[in-house]
Computed example of a mutant assay.
Amino acid sequence: MPSALPAVSPPAVSVALPCFNAASTLPAALDSLLAQTLQDFEVIAADDGSDATDGGATWDVLCAYARRDARIRPLRLPHQGVALTWNAAVNACRAPLIARMDADDLCLPERLALQAERLNAEPGLDLVSGLVRFGGDREKRLGYALHVDWLNTLRDHEAISRNRFVESPLANPSVMFRRAAWERLGPARANTGAHAFPEDYEQWLRWLSQGARMAKVQAPILVWNDPPTRLSRTKAEYSLEAFARIKAGYLWDWLRRHNPQHPRVWAWGAGRVSRKRLDALLALGLEIEHYVDIDPRKVGQRVHGVPVLGRDAVPQRLSDAAAETLAGTPAQTPFILVNVASRGAREEILEWLAGRGYQPGAGCVAVG
Results as ranks from 00 to 15, higher is better:
residue 235 K to F: 14
residue 227 P to K: 05
residue 331 A to Y: 08
residue 169 P to H: 07
residue 137 D to G: 05
residue 361 G to T: 12
residue 88 A to K: 05
residue 145 A to S: 12
residue 200 D to F: 05
residue 210 Q to M: 15
residue 96 P to W: 04
residue 253 D to S: 14
residue 283 A to C: 06
residue 165 F to R: 05
residue 173 P to I: 01
residue 310 G to I: 04
residue 142 L to P: 03
residue 225 N to T: 09
residue 154 L to K: 00
residue 122 E to R: 06
residue 330 P to N: 05
residue 48 D to Q: 11
residue 51 D to F: 10
residue 37 T to D: 09
residue 89 A to F: 04
residue 148 V to S: 04
residue 135 G to M: 07
residue 98 I to H: 04
residue 159 A to F: 01
residue 296 P to S: 08
residue 215 A to M: 11
residue 19 C to S: 14
residue 304 H to K: 14
residue 21 N to I: 09
residue 68 R to S: 11
residue 121 A to W: 13
residue 288 I to G: 01
residue 15 V to L: 00
residue 243 F to N: 02
residue 61 V to Y: 02
residue 325 T to G: 06
residue 70 A to Q: 01
residue 269 G to Q: 02
residue 197 F to R: 08
residue 220 P to Y: 07
residue 178 R to S: 05
residue 213 R to Y: 13
residue 36 Q to W: 06
residue 301 Q to T: 09
residue 20 F to G: 05
residue 262 H to E: 01
residue 281 L to W: 02
residue 102 D to H: 03
residue 342 S to T: 13
residue 24 S to M: 14
residue 322 A to H: 07
residue 340 V to H: 01
residue 146 L to E: 13
residue 229 T to M: 13
residue 307 P to N: 07
residue 226 D to V: 08
residue 343 R to I: 09
residue 74 P to L: 08
residue 99 A to V: 09
residue 313 A to P: 11
residue 127 L to M: 15
residue 199 E to D: 08
residue 20 F to S: 04
residue 183 E to Y: 10
residue 89 A to Q: 03
residue 229 T to I: 07
residue 16 A to E: 04
residue 65 Y to V: 02
residue 205 L to I: 15
residue 96 P to M: 09
residue 164 R to Y: 13
residue 208 L to P: 01
residue 359 Q to I: 08
residue 326 L to W: 08
residue 7 A to E: 13
residue 168 S to W: 03
residue 204 W to H: 15
residue 283 A to V: 00
residue 38 L to M: 12
residue 244 A to E: 14
residue 188 A to Y: 07
residue 257 R to H: 07
residue 255 L to I: 10
residue 126 D to N: 11
residue 334 P to F: 02
residue 18 P to Q: 02
residue 44 I to A: 00
residue 361 G to L: 10
residue 205 L to M: 12
residue 246 I to T: 00
residue 327 A to P: 00
residue 242 A to T: 10
residue 298 K to G: 09
residue 6 P to S: 14
residue 57 A to N: 09
